[in-house]
Amino acid sequence: MTVNTPDRPETSHPATPGRRPARPGAPPERRRQGASPEQGEFVRPLTRCQIDDRMLELGELYANTSSHRVRASDASGRGRSAAFRRRLAGHMRRPGFELLVAETAGPSGGIGLTACAYGFPVRCDRPWWDGLDGWYLPEGLLRVAAFGRLFAIADILVERRVRTQDQSREWNLARRLQRRLLSDHAAELGVTLVDRDNADTLEALLSWGWRCLTVEAREASRLAPGRLLVLR
């Protein structure tokens, strides 16, 4: 955790050379102190066996962090958790699949799961991803996929604060997770699909560096099952 604390107040002593004097009436400058976010949350991959062992925990994380509106008949999130686990089990069978988790130590010393992200390479010679096929991808992305440099990030599960605070900072946890997935697979581009009615997730992804397609590319993907975004 980082804490903002004020610098020591200015005194009446002559100004130290090179130090900018405070403006009259201006609040003292503030700076971040304490452990950096990268030290506070440890990111690591899980093996398939480890994912199986922690499947229920991952499902709970999805239910707690999902931005979708909860239906009255599913107030507990059990249905969303089960659907996520089924989807994850299917994605795990894809070649090159990788899942990263972020963990942090709690006050009692226990290690808690705070976030996860996963994906897999998209190749032209393999089945496409959840209905997204070559008819929906613009020519530029098809070329990247043909060279094995296109990586699909299927889910990024993070707490609300990661969606709303310091989204543009490189140490933002969502940015760390997506950057690690791409670098682990030497991917040139990342690609993801967002439900067209999920404005919260779209806003978060755009704040983490994802970009919508150009007008020409959008025309090629307008029949895709969701909104297609890319990440460099």
Rank of each mutant, 00 (worst) to 15 (best):
E10L: 08
A15H: 07
A15V: 12
R19G: 00
R23G: 06
P24G: 06
G25Q: 01
E29T: 10
E29P: 03
R31V: 11
R31S: 08
R32E: 07
R32S: 06
A35I: 09
R44T: 09
P45N: 00
P45T: 10
L46S: 01
T47A: 04
R48H: 12
R48M: 05
D52M: 03
R54L: 05
M55I: 11
L56T: 14
L56Y: 07
G59R: 07
A63K: 09
N64H: 06
N64L: 15
T65P: 06
S67R: 08
S67F: 04
H68L: 13
A72W: 07
S73E: 11
D74F: 07
A75L: 15
S76E: 08
G77R: 13
R78L: 11
R80T: 12
S81K: 15
A83M: 14
R85P: 05
R87L: 10
A89E: 07
A89W: 01
G90K: 14
H91E: 14
H91T: 10
R93P: 00
L100C: 10
V101D: 06
A102K: 07
P107Q: 02
L113P: 00
T114H: 13
T114C: 13
A115C: 05
C116P: 01
A117G: 03
V122M: 08
V122Y: 11
V122I: 10
D125T: 11
R126Y: 04
W129A: 03
G131C: 05
D133A: 08
G134D: 05
P138E: 02
P138N: 06
E139S: 10
R143T: 12
R143L: 14
